[in-house]
Write a protein that binds this DNA or RNA. Sequence first.
DNA 1: GTCGGCATGTAAGCTGTTACATGATTGA
DNA 2: TCAATCATGTAACAGCTTACATGCCGAC
Lengths: 182, 182
Amino acid sequence: MSLRYAILTLLATEPASGYDIVKHFRETLGYFWNAKHQQVYQELKKLSEDGNVLVENQGQEDKPDKKNYRLSAAGLAELQQWLAGSVPPNKINDALLVKLYAGQFTDVANLKAEMHSHRQTHENTLQALLATEQRYRKLTPAEQAHHQLPYLTLRRGILGEQAWLAWADEVMQVLDEQDARS
Amino acid sequence: MSLRYAILTLLATEPASGYDIVKHFRETLGYFWNAKHQQVYQELKKLSEDGNVLVENQGQEDKPDKKNYRLSAAGLAELQQWLAGSVPPNKINDALLVKLYAGQFTDVANLKAEMHSHRQTHENTLQALLATEQRYRKLTPAEQAHHQLPYLTLRRGILGEQAWLAWADEVMQVLDEQDARS
DNA sequence: GTCGGCATGTAAGCTGTTACATGATTGA
DNA sequence: TCAATCATGTAACAGCTTACATGCCGAC
């Protein structure tokens, strides 16, 4: 149900098309929100029907037409109402941990390969987040102050990825030992 | 789709009822897997129809009857096949971060209260995980070796919660400053 | 006498994924 | 020529949540 509010939040900052929103999720906010385009388009349709966003068709040269969505007063009100309430703690379902937990029923080489591949992904994510942090640090104090809350969410991404990688080190060490023993 | 394999994994260690499995998720594995009883009962029904688990009705004195499920050979084979493949990296959708990101549209007191409440939850989780870790450390080396992989998943929970709390400290500091300025 | 634990389920609805569908432009 | 980017959508299905339903036992 929060996809709705994630979209309203983005539109509160600036108008955007469904495509833009998906891109945002994929490229810059992926460390805390993800959604496929099909879901975003559906949600925008609903938001539009409910009067929370306003649409404007934009013809473009050399590119497909796009629909530009922006927040309505009602939309901002709904966002603020959601913000006033509390959100439940996140539900965690981590298939990789299920796999490790069941590790005795497969071979160590398989677990190592899987950890290696996941580590690569997390390493890439961390590097991207650190690069974003560097760009933030080069802003003027006034600009930094303006983006302070989004920056805090970025910090969550960074600390989270670093913790993941530190854990992966522990795991790889244990798996290497198990490998050596056999 | 991994709920199926989370259940098979639990049943690979020892037979259990749907109720037992839900309890496991709630009490000991909640830091990496969660499911409601309705979902677990449905999945057990499917697993049973597919021949991956075997059921035995157990009448009990002073307690409701229970169905005892255990893994079949086919069930173990399916689990092992799943383990042989790779699992996709986790999708993250964190409503709390959406809220922080949109923090400029609400007041700081609200954000502080929300952070405080979430911190409490994470603090409790961490304490429970650390207690479990202490119990693990008191086992004999042989016992420790036997539970080494599940222990690694526990470490993930601990490192993850510690990172969350360290992040919360950063956030609270910023929010306090913002509060003082206003 | 009311609440929590034990123990199982059905049904409706919402959320999210996968598959299918179209079509132009640009770069390797 | 093949893939990627831009840009939007429908339809079917799988996964998960919420509501409803039952009933006994023990503790406070």
